[in-house]
Computed example of a mutant assay.
Amino acid sequence: MNIQTEKLELMKLLLNTENPKVIQAIKRVFQKEKAADFWNELTVEQQQEIQEATAEINRGDTTNYESFMVKHRR
């Protein structure tokens, strides 16, 4: 069965239900899915900063936490 057929079957089930608990459960699934992807809520600049930081980490361009903090402590 392909994805479009699955969607149609789910639509039929949803249209035929009179159980509000089922409808609420389905809504929660979609709300969780939407809430889980925060990436799309970030600005382009924030996404670029994260991508650059990830690239730096992958290249090994990191600093030890303690040596970094020594410079910033009094």
Rank of each mutant, 00 (worst) to 15 (best):
M1S: 13
N2H: 06
I3Y: 12
I3W: 11
I3K: 13
I3A: 11
Q4E: 11
T5N: 10
E6M: 14
E6Q: 12
K7M: 11
K7C: 08
E9Q: 11
E9C: 12
E9K: 15
L10V: 04
M11D: 09
M11V: 15
M11A: 15
K12N: 12
K12D: 12
K12P: 03
L15I: 08
T17Y: 02
E18M: 06
E18C: 04
E18L: 08
N19R: 06
N19S: 01
N19V: 00
P20A: 02
V22Q: 13
Q24N: 12
I26H: 02
I26C: 04
I26S: 03
K27S: 11
R28S: 08
R28Q: 09
V29M: 04
F30T: 01
Q31L: 08
K32I: 12
K32C: 07
E33M: 14
E33Y: 12
A35T: 15
A35L: 04
A35K: 07
A36P: 05
A36E: 10
D37K: 10
D37P: 06
D37Y: 11
F38T: 15
F38W: 13
W39M: 07
N40S: 15
E41S: 14
L42E: 01
T43I: 01
V44G: 05
V44T: 14
V44C: 08
E45R: 04
Q46M: 03
Q46I: 00
Q46C: 00
Q46V: 00
Q46H: 03
Q46T: 01
Q47W: 04
Q47M: 03
Q48F: 04
E49Y: 10
I50Y: 00
Q51Y: 06
Q51M: 13
Q51V: 01
E52M: 09
A53E: 09
A53N: 09
T54L: 15
A55I: 05
A55M: 09
I57P: 00
N58S: 12
N58D: 14
R59C: 04
R59A: 09
R59M: 07
G60T: 00
D61Y: 08
N64A: 09
Y65S: 05
E66I: 02
S67V: 01
F68P: 00
F68Y: 05
F68C: 00
F68I: 00
F68G: 00
M69E: 01
V70Y: 03
V70P: 02
V70H: 07
V70D: 15
K71Y: 04
K71S: 07
H72D: 07
R73M: 11
R74Q: 14
R74L: 13
